[in-house]
Nucleic acid binder design. Sequence first.
DNA 1: TAAGGTTACGGCGATCGTAACGATC
DNA 2: GATCGTTACGATCGCCGTAACCTTA
Lengths: 302, 302
Amino acid sequence: MNLSQIELLQVLQETQLNLSKAAEKMHVVQSAVSRQLQLFEQELGSPLFERKGKKLVELTALGQQVMAEISVITQAKQNIKIMAADFLDSHQGIIHIATTHTQAKYFLPLPIQRFRKKYPAVRIYMQQASPEQLINQLHQHHADLAICTEKVTEDKGLVTLECYKWHHAVVVPQGHPLAEGEITRERLARFPILTYSFGYTGRSMIESAFQKNGIELDIILAAADTDVIKTYVRLGLGVGLIAGMAYNETSDYDLVMRDLSALIPSSSTKIAYLKHHYLPRYTQHFIEELRVAGEEILTTVN
Amino acid sequence: MNLSQIELLQVLQETQLNLSKAAEKMHVVQSAVSRQLQLFEQELGSPLFERKGKKLVELTALGQQVMAEISVITQAKQNIKIMAADFLDSHQGIIHIATTHTQAKYFLPLPIQRFRKKYPAVRIYMQQASPEQLINQLHQHHADLAICTEKVTEDKGLVTLECYKWHHAVVVPQGHPLAEGEITRERLARFPILTYSFGYTGRSMIESAFQKNGIELDIILAAADTDVIKTYVRLGLGVGLIAGMAYNETSDYDLVMRDLSALIPSSSTKIAYLKHHYLPRYTQHFIEELRVAGEEILTTVN
DNA sequence: TAAGGTTACGGCGATCGTAACGATC
DNA sequence: GATCGTTACGATCGCCGTAACCTTA
């Protein structure tokens, strides 16, 4: 048993058990990985893969058990490298952030700007995806941190930190009936609604708030992206149900925002990362920066 | 980075950072391990050990962090081997049990005998030690299971399962005053006491039961071993305070046992093993056997 | 001077790459 | 015939062992 065999198994999983692709990923010829896999299985005494002809099609029962340990080893090995690099220079490195559009555009700019001032040599790579995909990104080591509102607390392999709480708001064009007067769930439900797609930015909170009261919303457009929602609100398609912090007084001067904290329970945006993933110091500081910015949102809103 | 370097670090810790001893343990010459350590430190970019001259004296801060991951890898690697062996033949293998004298002599014989009937090809290695040492044995991978009454629940790295509850008893020679009449804490405390050493077989329960009531015991002999206690009771040195199941009606016919469940709260014997240690099926069955035997003790006593 | 550690060098074996072949869609 | 995997063989590079040397109790 050696580490390249371990790595091979890890890569095989990422390539749907395709030896050729795995070989390519590992920068060796295909015959090499074929042999290494044979040697490893031989050493263990049982096959790790079910084969159909020569192709690997799935993991054996043993393979599944072993694969769990493989992940542990890969993670630990990774941690050692990160620790050492962090020890050498804790002001240099990369943070891979996976987040949703709303966070990327309306929450992250300030903390990232501040962080970059303190750590100019740390690169920040940001990728957008749906919350479900974010979690995948973490598990596949394509991201170090995920920042989002939905789903992350359910995954047992993740650590989640609360970042900030916020609530939804409705935006309408100036002169729209909802721009004035008290807003109730019933009144809101009379208009066509534009809001987030399932699984995005507190959509679940919207669902539960109205369903619990037996009111059905007429959602005529669902998008992952607040800007798309605003665009169609401006076109007069209906009222926009968006995250409060996604309203910008200057650029959205033509829209009226009305707070819905009384109607929809607050949502909570979290920071998530893999439980056994060592975070270098600069990443820990980045998280601090996020939480500070989160605190500020709380205080400015109140 | 490769697995033998990982193993080297692990072994170095077990040999108090002595390269020569580590080399011997790994069956290679000393110069080989010296070079491998250098290569590894070079790869990481920082030393893992503080050196005094050429000698390694302690871990650096980085070394400590890295060492934690090393243990994880070692454990995972071990697990893979165990899993594979278990998969090949789940009726063959070795169980290393670490336990105290009391358990080894008075509890384990029955379940071990039964287990051996079902798994004749599984070797059982048993070693006796104090509860503290037992925990060390687990951490150093010298034992798979620890069976004892004290301490194991405090260690965060261990899984503990309750095995059975029992209570203390007093043994005296026939004709001794305590052989008759009601036994109270006060009455008991008037006699010289022979019981277990600190940290052994429910000794902590004895302490707390009497201290809480402001009564001091005159413990004139403390042993790790029930048989030693009985021997001196027979010589008339005092009364023996032992675990109830350590009294055997036939072989101890010359002693009188009086139950103390009313005076000393019951003790609980546990099975402990390392949290991330994979247990082969036969070991899981062995644990089952222990718990069945534990159940039986409960029912026969009541 | 014994014990622990490093450095230099030659030899051996593990693992790789090339290449030809087999199977499956 | 394109994709995927296995087998054979020669070449290379990593790692070990021998051995000489350094350093500190």
